[in-house]
Amino acid sequence: MRERIRAIFLGGGGIHTALAIIIVLATAFVPEFRHPDNIVNVLNQSATLAVLAIGQTFVIAAGLIDLSVGQLMSLVAVLISDLMAGRSALALPAFCLGIAVGTSIGLVNGVLLNILRIHPLILTFGMLSVLQGITFLYTDRSIGQVSPEFLRVASGSFAGIPFSLVIVIVLASTAHGALQRTRFGWHLQAVGANEENARRAGINTRGIKLVAYGISGLSAGLAGMLLAGRLGTGYPNAGSGFELDAIVAVVLGGTSLAGGRATIPGTLAAVLILAIASNMLNLLEVPAFGQMVVKGFIVIAAILLTQRRAAAV
C-alpha cells in the first residue's frame, strides 16, 4: 500500500507533484508571491538555469556529465559584453559570437572525450580550470556592457509574457521533441543505458557523444548571454557554481545520473521548484545563509522521495 501511494504521488511524475505542492504552499502562505510582477521575476530568474539544465539533460542522459558549463557561461558573458560595449549595432554579431564560442567549446569537450577516453567528470573538470584561466587572462574584473536588446530579452516582457519564458518554452519543446521523437534522441538514451550494446547495435556512439557535448556547450552559450543580459555587464565569475545547480535540477527532474533516461519536463519542474523555493525564502526575508541550508534540505528530501532505488554513482 505504501509503495502504491508512493507510486501515485512520487513515481515517474513525483517531481510534478512536488512542484504542485510548492506552488500551492507559496500561493497560500506568501501573499507577495501571487503578485504578477513577482511571478514574471521568478520566471526570468529561473530562465538562465532552465536553459543550462536543458543542455545538461542531454549529456547526463548519454551517461556523461559536463562540469565546464558554469565557467563557459562566464567566458561567453565576458566576451559578448566586451564586444558590444553597449552598442545596439553589435548585438547580432555578439549573439553569433556567444553561440559560436559555446558550441565550439562543447565540441572540444566531445572531441577530447572521444580521443583521450578519460572519465567525463575529470575531463570537464580539467576544462573548467582551463576556461577559468582563459576568462581571467582576458579580464579579472567586470568588463563591457550589453546592448539594450540583451537587457530587454533577459528581463522584459511583452503583454505580460516574459521573453525569457518564450525562449525556455521554445528550447524545451525542441529538446523534448529531439529526445523523445527522433532517432538521435533514442540513440542518445541507448548510449547512456549501455554504450557497448549501443555500439554493437550499430549506433555511432562517438558521434552521439560529440553532439551531446555540442548541445551542452550551445546551452551554456545561450545561458551565458541571458545571464549577461540580467547583469548588464560581463562579470568573470558570473556563472560560477551554475554547473552544480544544473546537475541537481536534471537529476531531481528524473533523468538518471547513470544515463539512459531523459525527461525535459522533469528538468523544468525541478528548476521551477528551486526558483520558487528561493523566491519564497527571499520574500519571507530568510537570510542568505539560512536559505542555503533550506535549499540543501530540499535537494536531499527530493532525492529521498524521487530517487529511491539502487543508483549508480
Binding site: 552544480l244 546537475i247 541537481v248 537529476v251 531531481l252 545520473l257 542568505a288 545563509f289 539560512g290 536559505q291 542555503m292 541550508v293 533550506v294 535549499k295 540543501g296 534540505f297 535537494v299 536531499i300 532525492i303 529521498l304 530517487q307 529511491r308 532505488r309 539502487a310 543508483a311 549508480a312 554513482v313
Partner: peptide, 30 residues
Amino acid sequence: LVAFNRISPFILTLGTAIIVYGLTQIQSGG
C-alpha cells in the same frame, strides 16, 4: 542516508555540501 536509502551518492553529497556551506556561513557570519 546512502546505506539505508540506496540513493545516488553523487547528488546526495552535493545536497549535504550545500547544507554544510550554509551552516559554515551562519557560523562565520560570512
